[in-house]
Simulated assay, not measured.
Amino acid sequence: MSALIVLTGPSGVGKGTLLRSLIQRHPELYLSVSVTTRSPRPGEIDGKNYYFVSRSTFERMVANGELLEWADFAGNLYGTPRKAVEDQIRQGNRVILEIELQGARQIRKNFPAALQIFILPPSLLELEDRIRHRAQDSEEAIVRRLQSARTEIAAADEFDICIVNDDIAKALERIEATLFATATC
């Protein structure tokens, strides 16, 4: 059973919704809070949803080795604070990272034992519909997210497990089965 779990998938695929449900059902899992240079969306809370920092602060964190991984996504920087994750693992806890493809590849190189799960949309058309109905992005940002999604989906076979999020309850059950499966001889 891996202490570090990576959850990746394109923007709008439902990673956040799945993770909120997973953490609610399994509070023993530690969800790492990422650092980002993007502005908070309505309702997001600093330190709970993300740590919102300036670009210069983020760049300092990279230079000082304070991030396990980091990525430039849709014009903003995102990263995983190293200390909190390492502290949780040392305490015997399982840690989940919700990160982008670029960051997942960094984790794979530095933590090859991490369990890597990729969440797929039922289709690109469905993904576009989800992104547009969030009504949080400009048309330019939507186009960028969809271009990134195509690249990310093409890399899904790099992951240990792929789960199609065609139904939240079923996708959550598949994640739980993956995380809590008991080994038999």
Results as ranks from 00 to 15, higher is better:
38 R>C: 09
139 E>N: 12
13 V>M: 13
147 Q>L: 13
30 Y>A: 10
132 R>Q: 13
22 L>E: 04
23 I>H: 13
164 V>C: 10
113 A>F: 07
114 A>Y: 08
179 L>T: 00
142 I>H: 07
19 L>G: 06
80 T>G: 09
122 P>E: 00
182 T>G: 00
103 G>V: 02
173 E>C: 13
137 D>W: 11
19 L>D: 09
19 L>E: 08
175 I>R: 06
138 S>K: 07
3 A>E: 11
114 A>M: 06
77 L>W: 05
106 Q>K: 09
185 C>G: 15
95 V>Q: 14
54 S>P: 04
81 P>C: 15
43 G>S: 06
139 E>H: 05
147 Q>I: 05
100 E>V: 07
173 E>Q: 13
107 I>S: 06
146 L>D: 07
125 L>W: 12
7 L>K: 04
152 E>A: 11
185 C>R: 14
104 A>W: 03
144 R>W: 01
162 C>R: 14
166 D>Q: 11
136 Q>P: 10
177 A>L: 00
30 Y>H: 12
67 L>A: 00
158 E>K: 15
105 R>I: 01
182 T>Q: 07
33 V>K: 04
66 E>M: 01
146 L>Y: 06
124 L>W: 04
81 P>A: 12
129 D>W: 06
132 R>T: 14
58 F>T: 02
131 I>T: 08
62 V>W: 02
77 L>R: 00
18 L>W: 11
175 I>L: 15
29 L>V: 05
67 L>P: 06
137 D>L: 13
45 I>D: 02
2 S>C: 15
1 M>E: 12
127 L>Q: 10
97 L>N: 15
178 T>M: 03
124 L>T: 03
95 V>H: 14
56 S>A: 14
25 R>G: 13
26 H>A: 09
98 E>C: 12
30 Y>S: 15
26 H>G: 09
119 I>G: 10
61 M>I: 00
47 G>N: 00
106 Q>P: 00
168 I>H: 01
108 R>F: 08
111 F>D: 08
39 S>D: 04
83 K>I: 03
118 F>D: 13
29 L>A: 12
146 L>T: 05
73 F>R: 05
4 L>Y: 11
12 G>Y: 08
97 L>V: 14
84 A>S: 15
75 G>Y: 03
61 M>V: 00
63 A>V: 02
163 I>H: 13
176 E>Y: 14
2 S>V: 11
35 V>I: 03
